[in-house]
Design a protein around this nucleic acid. Structure first.
Length: 139
DNA sequence: GCCAACGTTGGC
DNA sequence: GCCAACGTTGGC
């Protein structure tokens, strides 16, 4: 299993909205960036990911699971854009802030820090474990 | 609200 | 195929 990070502006699509979709989950649509799309094409059913709120909050607020592999993005007719479906798994007991991530010696190399504009990105297993610990999420 | 970083587009 | 111009993102 691999690990990922999904970034969203809470004013556009928030963790609460994701949770409200329940087991069925929801398309992670609207991505118009090739790198991000390619990562979604790489995802497998059951892969896990962090749900990150950008802008004001700047924190990992929960975990999600890939519940449908890459398929055409329903919000466009452009064949170039695929997306996966994700569903909420567990909320962070304590959101893990960007500031924490940047100052943590074992997290400073995260894509989130190195390439802050990429909206879908891979996370290593050790990064996954550290952030789950900080968030109070049991593995 | 500003600006740096980055990705995309289009003219040549 | 290069590169300037432009648009967007996201941290500050």
């Amino acid at each position: 299993m691999r690990y990922w990070l999904f970034k969203s502006e809470p004013s556009t699509w928030s963790w609460d909205q994701q949770v409200a979709k329940g087991e069925t989950g929801e398309e992670w649509d609207g991505v118009r960036n090739y790198q991000a799309r390619n990562f979604m094409r790489d995802m497998a059913l059951g892969d896990r990911g962090f749900f990150y709120h950008s802008q004001k909050e700047k924190a990992v607020v929960g975990t999600v699971e890939v519940c449908a592999e890459a398929h055409p993005d329903s919000t466009t007719d452009d064949e170039r854009w695929d997306c996966v479906d994700i569903r909420a798994l567990a909320p962070a007991q304590t959101p893990v802030t960007l500031d924490q991530i940047k100052t943590h010696p074992d997290l400073a190399e995260m894509v989130l820090v190195k390439n802050s504009r990429l909206s879908v990105q891979p996370v290593t297993e050790s990064e996954w474990q550290i952030i789950c610990n900080l968030a109070g999420i049991s593995l």
